[in-house]
């Protein structure tokens, strides 16, 4: 069992893949960490020595913002926009798309599941 950066316990997988289970670490950063610590591509998590696990942990602590800290940072950025009263903030407040997408149709990711309109008859 390897615990890296809080609660993440990915095992059995290759290190490059397993590291991506951490929020804030994707393919690029996982590769970066592996090359920095000097772990070969094929190594699996359960084959890591304690020293290597420690090195990985240190590398992440030093260079990356992950998990809770990252989520907090993102939430803070959004909150800043909302408090500012700028256009992007207003869009966040109404939970509508922020970057100028159309809302006549689509935009369901931001708007959530479609709500039925009162009084609209179904065409059969």
């Amino acid at each position: 069992m390897a615990r890296i950066a809080g609660v993440n316990i990915p095992t059995q997988k290759r290190v490059v893949i397993a590291l991506q289970y951490i929020h804030g670490i994707g393919p690029k950063f996982a590769q970066d960490i592996c090359t920095k610590v000097g772990i070969p591509d094929k190594r699996r998590v359960h084959e890591l020595t304690d020293a290597e696990v420690l090195q990985i942990r240190e590398a992440i602590d030093r260079d990356f913002v992950v998990e809770g800290d990252l989520r907090r940072e993102v939430a803070m950025n959004i909150k800043r926009l909302m408090d500012l009263g700028c256009y992007r903030g207003l869009r966040h407040r109404r939970s509508l798309p922020v970057r100028g997408q159309r809302t006549h149709t689509n935009a369901r990711t931001r708007k959530g599941k479609a709500k039925p309109i009162a009084g609209k008859k179904k065409t059969s």
């Binding site: 800043r80 408090d83 500012l84 700028c86 992007r88 207003l90």
Partner: peptide, 19 residues
């Protein structure tokens, strides 16, 4: 204008459409 607004454009704070 507050300090946080630096770097934004004026138009961002004056919506042109009524919601």
């Amino acid at each position: 204008v507050s300090e946080d607004m630096i770097g934004h454009k004026f138009g961002e704070f004056s919506p042109t459409r009524t919601f």
